[in-house]
């Protein structure tokens, strides 16, 4: 479904050369929910932007259903961490959700239906007439998720979407993502720095190394599909997986401190 092969991204500017992503290869199958987790500053956002066609990779390629991604593909929707800046304050919630649909060739009635349905799925059926800034942070992120759902994407990319909301809201939103994934069968690539979140949400967790980034390990999460905040998080298997990912991340950080120095890119 989603194929990332040999992805490399180097930022160059004003005499500095920063290799953000070195060599990433992984796939996400149709209908899978995959979490990408890595130490902070490891180029997760860069990676996701390359996957979403917002940034052009320096080398390697991304393909969606066999087609090369060289710009934002129509079958992909993006949920950003900064919901407050990603939603347009000059549009009401309903219009925010509808705007991407206006670029598609859909009838007015169909657009209305999609907007109503998407807002209902995130529990905000009666918020269509409000402005985003009249809602709480968690509700705003729900609107951003509804906007992505209404777009009917094959793949949903989520870039640390819950990093800026409080812990309780975060738990609710995690359950929301699990539920939507199961109900709608969308493919989700979810980037996070939170190990617990990655294990709780994902069917598979890809652990990234520190920058310059490579895939360190891929882990299948063999927890039951039916998960809940109370029981799943105290299950022994959850603790094992969590510990495993945690160790990998710690090793990634240490690994970055010593050998990476040797192959630092030449300066200038």
């Amino acid at each position: 479904m989603l194929d990332v092969r040999g992805l490399k991204k180097v930022y160059e500017g004003s005499g500095r050369r920063i290799e953000a992503v070195r060599d990433l290869t992984f796939t996400v199958g149709a209908g899978e929910l995959v979490c990408l987790v890595g130490p902070s500053g490891c180029g997760k956002t860069t990676l996701l932007k390359c996957v979403g066609g917002l940034l052009a990779p320096t080398a390697g390629e991304v393909s969606l259903s066999g087609r090369k991604v060289d710009g934002p593909p129509p079958g992909m929707a993006f949920v950003f961490q900064e919901y407050g800046r990603s939603l347009f304050p000059w549009m009401r919630v309903g219009d925010n959700v509808e705007l991407p649909l206006r670029q598609k060739d859909l009838s007015r009635a169909r657009r209305r239906e999609l907007v109503g349905d998407a807002l209902a799925s995130v529990g905000l059926a009666d918020a269509a007439g409000a402005y985003p800034w009249q809602l709480s942070g968690g509700m705003q992120q729900r609107v951003a998720i509804a906007r992505a759902l209404a777009y009917e994407p094959e793949v949903l990319l989520m870039d640390e979407p819950f990093a800026a909301v409080d812990a309780q809201t975060r738990a609710d939103l995690e359950d929301l993502v699990r539920r939507l994934w199961r109900e709608r069968g969308i493919t989700i690539l979810f980037v996070t720095h939170d190990i617990d979140e990655a294990v709780y949400l994902g069917e598979r967790v890809i652990v990234l190394s520190a920058s310059p980034t490579v895939v360190r390990e891929q882990l299948r999460v063999d927890l039951p599909a039916e998960r809940d905040q109370v029981h799943t998080r105290v299950a022994p298997r959850f603790a094992e997986l969590r510990t495993r990912v945690y160790e990998q991340i710690q090793a990634a950080k240490r690994g970055a401190a010593t050998p990476a120095k040797a192959d630092m890119p030449p300066s200038g």
């Binding site: 992909m76 993006f78 950003f80 990603s86």
Partner: peptide
């Protein structure tokens, strides 16, 4: 972020100017 949101949802140049 608003600009990237618009691009990721396939808004063209004219739609991005307008919206």
């Amino acid at each position: 972020v608003a600009e990237e949101t618009a691009r990721s949802y396939g808004l063209g140049t004219w739609a991005r100017i307008r919206h």
